[in-house]
Design a protein around this nucleic acid. Sequence first.
RNA 1: CGGGAAGUAGCGCAGCUGGCUAGCGCACCUGGUUUGGGACCAGGGGGUCGCGAGUUCGAAUCUCGCCUUCCCGACCA
Length: 568
Amino acid sequence: MRWSKSLIPTLKEDPQDAEVISHKLMVRGGFIRKLSSGVYSYLPLGFRVLEKVKNIIRQEMDAKGSQEVLLPALHPPEIWKKTGRYDILGDVLIKFKDRHGRELLLGPTHEEIVTDLVANNVKSYKELPLILYQIQTKFRDEPRPRFGVMRTSEFIMKDAYSFDCDAGALEASYKKMYEAYCKIFERCGLPFIPVEADPGMMGGSVSHEFMVLSEAGEDRIAVCLKCKYAASVEIAACKLKTKAGPAKEKILPIAQVDTPGITTIEKVSELLRVGAEKLVKTLIYKADGNVVAVLLRGDHEANETKIKNYLKAAALELADVKTIEDVTRAPVGFSGPVGLRNVRIIVDNAVGSMANFITGANKKDTHLINVNASRDFESKEFADLRMIAKDDGCPMCGKPVDVKQAIEIGHTFKLGTKYSDALGAKVLDKDGKELSAVMGCYGIGVTRILAGVIESNNDKDGIIWPLAIAPYQAIIIALNMDDKKVKEVSEDIYAKLSGAGVEVLFDDRNETAGVKFKDADLIGIPIKIVVGAKNAKKDITEVKDRRSGIVTEVAVKDIETYLKTLLG
RNA sequence: CGGGAAGUAGCGCAGCUGGCUAGCGCACCUGGUUUGGGACCAGGGGGUCGCGAGUUCGAAUCUCGCCUUCCCGACCA
């Protein structure tokens, strides 16, 4: 392709509305343009990268025997009501009415649709295992799209669904997909980490997220450098440093202290000159409408996923001010477990081993000191309810873990029979008995892969695409198109390489050398073929590696062979 | 949805304490000189100053309302 004929609108300056590096570079390099919040156009370069990634996905999915399909984006709501997810997804679903007043929604994911397809068309165990996948645009009304294509309301996803006769067979399908995912991400040049994760609204038991470490990531994962344990902080179990049980400290008499206007852990800890670890915070939640008090050590962070899972609640949110005041009969900031009536109290394990701690007094401007669980309030329910933090013990080996920011690029789930039961995806087994298909589902954020790759492959000059997904493998930089020899040599190389099937971009613009070098680096083409006047006269060209910067002089007549070697 | 910031040419910005014809850099068009890391000269095109109302002789500038975008939080497959 000739640059002069391409739509590659590069920018010298960072766009005003971009924060993270991948977003800035994708816009500056002319890969994407924003239409509205969370909605992007992919320009020719961006489109080419997407196609490369899709093809890698197709190859690896096909290699595992899964079959590509294309399911509709337009869904009738009834099918979503059958599984209950019409309400669970709520405002995430983009809904509207057709001319007949019939409601329709745009597919945010396709468990319901694919299960319905299988329910209607697969009848025998002999047809299983079956894995179907598609690459398609998903629509989700995101509360807050951000960071370029990292989180958008419209995005391309590869989603796959496996159907098996039993748990053992699901295990085999799940393993296949897991392997395919590792290959896909490796080929895309992503330094990924598979972690254990929470299945969330998808349901099911086991789930893995495929993460790419990045400051720009929206998720946090706990990683152990010692034993390779890695898990989403949402599910990483918190080990107690000391055994639970009665505290060894001498129990002191409970007392009130005045804390006027002191409503936060930091301020209480400052006023009373004790560390936050001596405080217990009482968070009032609403779980499916029921009020619950959650007790956590002052320096610990609540883990709403664990709380939700413990309570088996579908929805969990911090209670509003009015509810808190009703329940505690005190302003927000003075909640405590002592005297809290008619409220279920659940206690984080770490609080179980504390003695003589400080809590709110359920009374304005007052806290309590020397509170002790068994003596001062009823505490029957203990559980792991907090978020793991840096230097907490690894759940596997006990050594300190690190907590890092990461981008989720893939997610796999063992779903079980949740969807097949709801939608009647049953087959007859050997004995003629009906059984519900045991399902798994497997997603890859195709558009998000681009962001992930750029986040982990860039330098001050721009993107450094891994060869496998670069929009072009090589770029010919003709330093001066007015120089007859330069033009002749670069045209010659362009013809040769194009003929040899090399994906090559020919920068034939009437721009200065500087502009061409800067643009080539910005858009991240792995191999630069520089044609300058001096070398052209000698029928020599320079081949420069984008990542290493290493330059090799190559005779024009050998360029085709040389490139083929480089490209493997 | 709560908190914060911002909307002036395609992009990045200045102007804004009430005053002339709305300006700068980049990009774009024409001609010329250039060409090894974001060239130079000359000429030129491009604007409902986010939208609406109000105050005023006069509003990009002041007031109010709305919209949009970004950041933090909530939410998140």
